[in-house]
Design a protein around this nucleic acid. Structure first.
Length: 314
DNA sequence: TGACAGGGGGTGT
DNA sequence: ACACCCCCTGTC
């Protein structure tokens, strides 16, 4: 209990409500879904309470008796209520999806599915996903979260009125959650030097140039979001700082393109060690992934990724 | 307790 | 292959 907490007015959060859809992940799987590298705007505020931000939304998730509840700042709870189902994929049958993966003929995949049972893919806003993964090159999750938190705090609009901001403080929420991420339009007005001030390093130039490009091509993002996988990926690859891996992440986490198969260092290790594909180039591995795991390869990838990262010492 | 390497979920040349 | 930035972490 800090001195600051005592001065604060009472909560202005909405009531806790049950999360529709019957998702009951273990604490570890909930953590892996929200904070395992898909999204960079969730934080654990208590052992079973998470607070996250996307677009103009702020939500808390709470695990009680293996069930999930949610709430939002009262001032925006209606908006959050309508945005939450799509973001968390509450209307998607993830169990059926997992079951459709080729685990019957793939013992390692079966292990990963068992260990991370209940894992989901988030459906994040396309533009924000692009921004997050432009920050991700040679960075770990902690550092990426720090970068986007600074971008939001310095260049994003506040999400709720000040009275609500105080209530957030009372809930122990980090200040970064009080601001939304800057839009690409807003980013286009930020000098590269100020971006560097957000700990972006060499990524600042990529983000700056991407922002300028998107400002000149206002419909580009929205169009790309609804194009088929192959075409959308080709377009993303035109952006500075976007290569194969980042493009696939953006499409998988920000456009629900489940055939996208990002090959990062962890998947590289998985395919090398567990699938005997040592020496293969990333592009060929991605091709293998889509062929072997099928149309939901990206979902399979998330299980493999989580397992490999958890067992990083092996 | 303060320096000091080493390395980090990639991209571009 | 190597540079790009530079923060974080582990170590001495």
């Amino acid at each position: 209990m800090t001195r600051r907490d005592k001065k604060l007015p009472p909560y202005s959060w909405s009531e806790w409500l049950p999360l529709p859809g019957g998702w009951s992940p273990s604490p570890a799987v909930l953590a892996e879904t929200l904070d395992g590298g898909q999204a960079f705007r969730w934080q654990r505020d208590a052992p079973d309470v998470w607070t996250g931000t996307w677009s103009d939304n702020v939500a808390q998730l709470r695990r009680t008796n293996d069930l999930l509840e949610w709430r939002a700042p009262a001032a925006i709870s209606k908006r959050v209520a309508s945005a939450l189902p799509a973001y968390l994929g509450l209307d998607v049958d993830w169990t059926a999806r997992a079951d459709s993966l080729p685990w019957r003929s793939d013992a390692h995949l079966a292990t990963c599915l068992r260990e991370f049972s209940g894992l989901r893919l988030l459906r994040q806003p396309f533009g924000e996903t692009l921004l997050g993964f432009l920050c991700s090159a040679t960075k770990q999750i902690v550092q990426i979260k720090q970068m986007v938190a600074l971008l939001a705090a310095r260049h994003g609009a506040p999400l709720v009125e000040r009275v609500d901001l105080n209530a957030f403080g009372g809930a122990g929420v980090d200040a970064a959650h009080l601001y939304r991420l800057p839009t690409w339009t807003e980013l286009a007005a930020v000098p590269e030097k100020e971006l560097r001030g957000c700990l972006l390093g060499f990524r600042a130039r990529f983000i700056h140039e991407t922002a300028l490009f998107l400002a000149k091509n206002p419909a580009w993002l929205a169009e790309t979001e609804r194009l088929p996988y192959v075409v959308a990926k080709a377009r993303l690859l035109e952006l500075p700082g976007v290569g194969e891996k980042v493009a696939d992440c953006v499409l998988l986490f920000g456009a629900a393109q489940l055939e996208a198969f990002p090959v990062d260092v962890w998947i590289l290790k998985t395919l090398e060690r567990r699938y005997g594909l040592a020496g293969w180039k990333p592009a060929r591995l991605a091709q293998f992934g889509r062929a072997h795991f099928g149309p939901l390869a990206g979902y399979a990838q998330q299980f493999l990724f989580s397992w490999e990262r958890k067992n990083r010492k092996q």
